[in-house]
Design a protein around this nucleic acid. Structure first.
Lengths: 114, 114
DNA sequence: TTATTATATTAGAAATTATTAATATTGGTT
DNA sequence: AACCAATATTAATAATTTCTAATATAATAA
C-alpha cells in the first residue's frame, strides 16, 4: 500500500466519523434543532422524548465527531454546530431525496395515464 | 403530534436511511470507486480485501437505500450510483472536513509563533 | 450436460451501538 | 452549608450491524 492510499484511508476515516455520528435519528433531530442556532440541553430535551442521560450521550457523540461544540453558561450548557457546513451536507442530502420523490411521482403519473 | 411533525419524521427517516447506508467504510469506498462510472463486482473486489459475499451484502445495502442500481450483463453484474447527487453529499462533507483541517493548521501556526 | 466463473443468499457468531438506570458533578439559591 | 436544577458519567443490558462460512443461482464454455 503506497502513501496515497494511506492518506486516502485516513480521509475515508474522517468522512466515516461524520457519517457515523449522523447516522442516528436522535442525532439528526438534534442537528435540525440546532439549525436556528445555539440551544441549551433543556431546550432540546422536550423535542426528544427520551432520557436526559441518553440525550447527553448523543450530544457527546456529535461533539466527539467535531460536529457540535458546547460551552457552559451558568447552570446551562449551550450547544451549537461547530461549522454550518454540516447543514450544507444535509441540504445536499435533501436535494437527493427530493429527486427521488420526483422520480417516484413521475412514475406514478405514467402508471395512471396508461 | 400533528401532521407536519409526522411528515418531518418520515423525512427524517429517509435521511437516516441514506446516512446509515453510507456510514460504513466499505460502502464509502464502494461509492468512491463508482465515481468514475459503472463497474462490475469483479472490478470492485480487488480494491476491497474482503470476502466476495460480504461485498455483495454491502452492495445490497446501498441498493436497498436507493443509492446504487445494478443490471446484469452476461455473467457480470454492473453497479452504478442511481443519482450523482450522492457525490454532492460527499463533496459537501469533504468541504466541511477541509475547513476542519484548515482550522487545525491555523491553530498549529499560532502555537509555533508564540 | 458438466464444469466454471461471477454473483447472491443465508444463518449464525462477533462486534458495535443504543438505551436504561443509577449516580456524580456543577452552579445557583435559600 | 444544605438544597435544587441542569447536565454528565458509568456500567450493564438490549438491539443492531457486520462478518464468516457454507451454499445457491445464473450465465457461459467445454
Amino acid at each position: 500500500m503506497d502513501k496515497r492510499v494511506l492518506e486516502n484511508l485516513s480521509w475515508l476515516q474522517k468522512r466515516l466519523n461524520v457519517c457515523k455520528a449522523v447516522a442516528n435519528s436522535t442525532r439528526l433531530r438534534l442537528l435540525d434543532l440546532l439549525r436556528d442556532g445555539e440551544k441549551c440541553v433543556c431546550e432540546l430535551l422536550p423535542y426528544l422524548d427520551m432520557e436526559q442521560s441518553n440525550v447527553s450521550q448523543h450530544l457527546n457523540i456529535l461533539k466527539n465527531a467535531g460536529i457540535v461544540v458546547s460551552h457552559r453558561k451558568g447552570q446551562h450548557v449551550l450547544y451549537n454546530v461547530r461549522n454550518d457546513k454540516i447543514f450544507d451536507v444535509m441540504d445536499a442530502l435533501d436535494s437527493l431525496l427530493v429527486d427521488e420523490l420526483e422520480e417516484a411521482s413521475e412514475l406514478l403519473k405514467n402508471i395512471e395515464n396508461r
